[in-house]
């Protein structure tokens, strides 16, 4: 059993190294891919605009729950005026980047992985290689960059809608004073809170996009292979995002 564990551990480390080598290959091709911005714009649309509805809906509900829970918690200490601060910091620093990344992996990551995997399974990537077109440059890099750019924007939209949702419940339903809700938020949310959110969503965007294109590009060229790649994209992304979240949080609070 220990042997199995060690085997799977060494396999994971091998895959991690492989993924980082793939990242290096992607980064080397970024300059030439940037020369054709239309390909990247298309992918920002695919990864970003098409995820908007699910991100906005989820942001609204998460914000509303935060408003309710936060109100219940804070009124025990008689400090429900701090609801605006609590909701904003919770969303911007933590829930916005993390929940967006998880949704992003489920919506955009799986789409990327299965699209690239199917291109592999139907010889489209080999056909490009035969036409002397590097599929990493033509297919992988624009999709990776599209995800990397879209993810922080989605996280920002998520946090914004979430704050609106918290306000909806806290101010409109629970009758927290609107003035103190907004002014306390303005007074106590600092630039470093925002920075933490930006760093997190950027890092999660890189991680989720990289995992998705790596899994798709290296999937076995069969129906089963594409399915496995899609599943792995979601599972790996979720675990990696939560792990990185801890690291970044610890870094910012040290």
């Amino acid at each position: 059993m220990i042997r199995d564990f060690l085997d799977s551990l060494s396999e994971s480390i091998e895959r991690l190294g492989d993924t980082i080598r793939f990242l290096a290959r992607i980064l080397a091709q970024v300059p030439s891919a940037v020369l054709r911005p239309q390909l990247i714009f298309d992918q920002i649309y695919n990864a970003g605009a098409l995820s908007l509805v699910i991100i906005m809906l989820s942001g609204l509900f998460v914000g509303m729950v935060l408003g309710l829970q936060g109100y219940d918690l804070l009124q025990r200490f008689g400090s429900e005026d701090a609801l605006g601060t609590a909701a904003a910091i919770g969303l911007v620093r933590e829930l916005g980047p993390v929940v967006t990344a998880l949704l992003f992996a489920g919506r955009a990551g799986t789409a990327l992985a299965s699209e690239i995997g199917l291109m592999r399974a139907t010889d489209q990537l080999s056909a490009m290689e035969m036409m002397a077109v590097d599929p990493v440059r033509r297919v992988v890099v624009p999709r990776f960059l599209g995800g990397v750019i879209a993810m922080p924007l989605l996280a920002a939209i998520f946090s914004m809608i979430g704050i609106y949702g918290a306000q909806l419940v806290g101010v409109q339903i629970m009758h927290v004073d609107a003035g103190s809700f907004w002014s306390q938020m303005q007074a106590s949310v600092e630039l470093r809170d925002i920075n933490e959110g930006i760093v997190k969503s950027a890092v999660f965007g890189i991680a989720c996009s990289l995992i998705a294109v790596y899994q798709g590009y290296h999937s076995a060229p069969t129906a089963e292979g594409v399915g496995t790649a899609t599943t792995r994209t979601v599972v790996t992304s979720a675990v990696i995002v939560l792990f990185l979240d801890y690291l970044i949080t610890a870094f910012f609070l040290k």
């Binding site: 291109m119 010889d123 489209q124 056909a127 490009m128 290689e129």
Partner: peptide, 28 residues
């Protein structure tokens, strides 16, 4: 560089499925 002087017909054609016939031929 060598492959630019070669063409290959794959078993199922391997056309790029997200662009039209015209764009597929124009791709190279």
């Amino acid at each position: 560089a060598m492959r630019q002087r070669m063409g290959m017909l794959f078993q199922n054609g391997a056309l790029l499925t997200d662009i039209s016939v015209f764009e597929n031929v124009a791709f190279p």
